[in-house]
């Protein structure tokens, strides 16, 4: 990453394009990149029939493929993330931004204004999911008017299934766990729990953590 080492000796235009026309049968690498970007269409016979262009195109394609892994390779040589750096980020994010709606908790005394945040309830749904082996809960939605006590609420959950786990089985256990935890902790009237399994993961490492 040198800013200064090559500051002198400006290149002339001749320098810049010097090698291309001779080596690439009159084409430049830049043209060839555009040709690739366009999916080699419309077909250009002077490129397609030139061995040197074909070699250059192959190189370019190889470089494209390498672009992403290049960064990954570099990242893999870097020292691990500093724990205080990670903690610093987590410290600076706003948890309040995920509070969602306010879900009332009933009480006979009219002076009582009691409630649980929607975000807390979603946390309960995740906690229920985390108790179910072979399954990971993702996004969770509370469909219905949660702000009206007694209104029927449907819980919609995205989940990932561990490789080799029976989906209907795990879904049943998850549904049961969600009902159980919400009945225990909230006054919500749960009309149903919809589970969408749209992901698969390898559970081998589950529980072992990093």
């Amino acid at each position: 990453m040198n800013d200064s080492q090559n500051d002198s000796e400006p290149a002339t235009d001749a320098d810049r394009t010097r090698r291309d026309p001779a080596e690439l049968d009159g084409h430049t690498l830049d043209e060839l990149s555009d040709y690739l970007d366009a999916g080699r269409a419309p077909a250009d016979a002077s490129i397609d029939s030139s061995p040197s262009c074909q070699i250059a195109l192959t190189s370019l394609e190889r470089l494209y493929r390498l672009s992403d892994t290049l960064l990954e390779a570099q990242a893999s040589t870097e020292p691990d993330l500093d724990e205080s750096w990670v903690a610093g980020i987590l410290h600076n994010i706003s948890r309040d931004s995920r509070a969602g709606r306010t879900i009332p908790v009933t009480h006979p005394d009219p002076a009582a204004e009691l409630a649980i945040t929607e975000g807390t309830v979603r946390g309960l749904v995740r906690a229920a999911g985390d108790m179910v082996e072979g399954l990971l809960v993702g996004r969770c939605r509370l469909d219905g008017d949660v702000t009206t006590p007694g209104a029927p609420i449907t819980i919609s959950v995205d989940a990932s299934i561990g490789w080799g786990t029976s989906i209907p089985d795990a879904a049943d256990r998850l549904r049961e766990a969600i009902y159980g935890i919400l009945i225990r902790h909230t006054d919500l009237t749960i009309a149903g729990v919809d589970i969408t399994v749209d992901d698969v993961h390898n559970p081998a490492a589950k529980g072992s953590s990093r």
């Binding site: 306010t102 009691l114 807390t120 309960l124």
Partner: peptide, 12 residues
């Protein structure tokens, strides 16, 4: 004397 008490659970 108490007019109202508002309690919100924001986390478990």
């Amino acid at each position: 004397p108490v007019a109202s008490i508002r309690i919100l659970i924001a986390n478990i």
